[in-house]
């Protein structure tokens, strides 16, 4: 049963999850901020798009730290690569990354957050709205992945 549900074991998942949690905790303890990832993608447009939405103070006041935080994500991956840890290869077709990417960006911003903002910070805040959005994207994510798998478009 365990081997069927977790064919690659659980220890690296558990350790990775704890490291992610430590990152979110560090940001909160030191700066008081809740570290979702997706607002970065809207806040960064404020440097280029001079419209009322993108010039809202929430973006202007947070865009600097959000850029640093996003840079940290890339740095974390780079450190992983630099330590010569097991390579993570992927064969995802470009059309899926492009189509999925646009839906993720649009959906996360309309939905007010993503897997980190609603998933980790929102659920840790016991925010009912965040939990509702997480239930919604889990449901449509599972349905879409199963649909693609049954059509032979999956991995």
């Amino acid at each position: 049963m365990i081997e069927t549900l977790f064919p690659h074991g659980i220890s690296h998942y558990l350790v990775g999850g704890l490291l992610i949690g430590l990152g979110v905790a560090l940001l909160f303890i030191v700066t008081g901020r809740q570290g979702g990832a997706s607002t970065f993608f809207s806040a960064s447009w404020s440097w280029l798009a001079k419209t009322p939405f993108f010039q809202q103070s929430a973006f202007l006041q947070s865009r600097n730290w959000r850029l640093v935080y996003a840079g940290g994500f890339v740095l974390g991956g780079l450190i992983y690569l630099g330590m010569g840890l097991p390579q993570v290869t992927s064969e995802m077709p470009a059309w899926k990354l492009a189509l999925g990417g646009v839906l993720i960006g649009y959906g996360a911003r309309l939905g007010g957050g993503c897997t980190s903002g609603h998933g980790i910070c929102g659920m840790a805040s016991l925010n009912i709205g965040s939990i509702s959005v997480v239930m919604t994207f889990m449901a449509t994510g599972i349905a879409t992945a199963w649909l693609f798998k049954s059509l032979g478009w999956g991995v």
């Binding site: 999925g100 990417g101 994207f137 349905a143």
Partner: peptide, 17 residues
């Protein structure tokens, strides 16, 4: 928005972080 995010997530297996 959450529903559309999930569809994108289910298509490509990627989220922002």
């Amino acid at each position: 928005g959450g529903a559309l995010f999930g569809i994108g997530w289910g298509i490509c297996g990627v989220c922002p972080g």
